[in-house]
Design a protein around this nucleic acid. Structure first.
Lengths: 211, 211
DNA sequence: GACTGTGAAGCCATTCACAGCT
DNA sequence: AGCTGTGAATGGCTTCACAGTC
């Protein structure tokens, strides 16, 4: 795999392609063209081919792509050919909802532990996942070989929690706290910022000259 | 306001700047430089100045920006000087968590209704928000002047729900369903794709030559 | 001296257009 | 004929570097 300098936008699209292909496969479709994929996910055919070309030649000229093959290849590119244990910090409403979220399991993610600093919650079970005290994190990360930590904590606690996750051995963080977090170079981080997303919509609404 | 062709990345950053400025203001900071903002949110100083320059001249050369002023101006740019009623479709775990989420209220968003197709849930209250039958949507959107709809429904229902939102008069959609949705040109849409975000992390984890 | 505002340069992603297979 | 794979062209965002202002 000759990587280095793949646009992040390409990775986002690959993830979307793979979901689309999975659905196409379930509908019994054997072969698919870049144009059909493009149509299904709302990008240009050239974009689909370019994205795939970063990783190899998966199609047949004059024919298209084999759906099962391509899906399998993209899953492998994304690292989804293996099982990914994850932990969630913050057993509030959002953390709980994420723990229950079926979409993660479907794609090979499994929440193996939740963490909270509220003593009343420690020991509780959500969706068969136990809520632990933060001090147990290092052990569980080690024992379950967890690399992914999901943060659903208030903005004020986010940096401290991130530091704690890193010291516990976590390698990638999905952050839901509305706060810019600093992590060491070798830690992957992504922010899912709920209010920012709403604010982009209000900006766009402002551009419309209606009423 | 001479808009047209503002990079979306700029809008995302403006939203982050505004949060940062709000915190700076609370800490009593009066004046701030592009470098300090840049440091706080993890971008370059030139980027901060360029982003702001799309909308006007908010700073003073040799001095910097007045925190309160700049914050107020950015809020206005984002359309956050007014109140934004919103509805949520899908009263499952995620929809419920979003309804309870404090971050929305902090930024001027208010959930004025939830909708679900499960008869058992209709009439229930979550966080003082009533769960209605879908057929009530048009009335509530009109009465409350709602422009924003949040979708927390399964992928399979997403396109239908989106169509329904549009026909009810919604102008902007925040979609949490893992599915590409088609909406008319004049409707603003943003996808918050939880699994895609995790999959970008697994891709990045795959690039690390560790173990 | 410090810091903003901005044209120009540089860089990166997307689109084009066509050669190469089937 | 149909569709992929890809170098070249385009377009857009970011960084640079400096003139302008306090």
């Amino acid at each position: 795999m000759k990587t280095l300098k793949i646009p992040e936008a390409t990775i986002i699209r690959l993830s979307v392609y793979s979901r689309f292909l999975s659905q196409a496969d379930q509908r019994g479709i054997i072969t698919i063209s870049s144009g059909e994929i493009a149509e299904g996910v709302g990008v240009s055919p050239a974009q689909v081919r370019k994205d795939l070309a970063y990783f190899g030649e998966f199609g047949t000229r004059g024919v298209g792509y084999n759906v099962k093959d391509l899906h399998h290849n993209i899953m492998k590119i994304l690292g989804l050919n293996s099982y990914w244990p994850a932990i969630i910090v913050g057993a509030g409403h959002l953390g709980t909802a994420l723990c229950m979220y079926g979409g993660f399991k479907e794609r090979g993610f499994k929440v193996v532990g939740m963490f909270d600093n509220n003593p009343d919650k420690i020991g509780e079970n959500i969706n068969n996942v136990t809520i632990y005290d933060l001090t147990k994190m290092g052990d569980i990360v080690k024992k379950e070989k967890v690399k992914i930590g999901i943060m659903a904590v208030p903005a004020g606690a986010a940096q401290d929690v991130a530091n704690y996750l890193v010291s516990a051995g976590i390698k990638a963080i999905l952050n839901f706290a509305p706060k810019v977090i600093n992590v060491p170079e070798h830690i992957a981080i992504r922010n899912v910022d709920l209010t920012v997303n709403l604010e982009i919509l209000t900006f766009n609404l402002g551009l419309i000259k209606d009423n």
